[in-house]
Amino acid sequence: MAKRYGMVIDLKRCVGCQTCALVCKLENHQPLGLWWNRVLTIGGPEIDTPFGTYPDLQMSFLPIACQHCEDPPCVEVCPVGAAYKREDGLVLINWETCIGCRYCIVACPYGVRVYNWRSTKEQEIPDFQVGAPEVPARPLGVGEKCTFCVHRVDKGLQPACIPCPSRARFFGDLNDPNSEVSKLIKEKGGYQLKSELGTNPSVFYLPAKR
């Protein structure tokens, strides 16, 4: 059976430390102001604040990046076919074809696609490219998003965000019932975000409270 790459993120273990956001930022040398992976606070109105009133409080975190949907709305709406889905489940962008119309950003129900809005050359520190050399530098005015580190996956490695201080992130073949991700989803009740939309994401979350 064909591979279907997927990710599992354990929200019970996740402490919102932002390491996965940073490792992605470094690996894919993203410019200032642009983040492919973000960790949102499920709590109060500010980062790291809970909801409720002292002392009845609750807080958890949601790391969110491209969900690599099986039925991606972004692929459907891209007018020039720059957004495409591979056989093994990865949803990718062809940065040579993207015209920067941002329809995919509008269409994504998770809000995980971002856009290269500004030239930040002057402000970048350091002033040379860092991170992985296999990841292309994106020109101004194109859409970007998590690629499941396709440059690493194709070499048999895992995405850069998997080594997490909380050991809360897992990657593997969802079509293999014996893979770690499949077992985690089954045993710990993995769920998808906005599953009612029918996008069938490849990223599953394990509940924060269980």
Binding site: T19, L22, Q129, P165
Partner: peptide
């Protein structure tokens, strides 16, 4: 150009954080 988590002899202690990546 990059710092990433490296393996310790006792891999249970492998670690990296958002600061060490910068």
């Amino acid at each position: 150009v990059k710092t990433e988590m490296g393996p310790l002899q006792d891999t249970r202690y492998d670690r990296i954080c958002l600061r060490g990546l910068t």
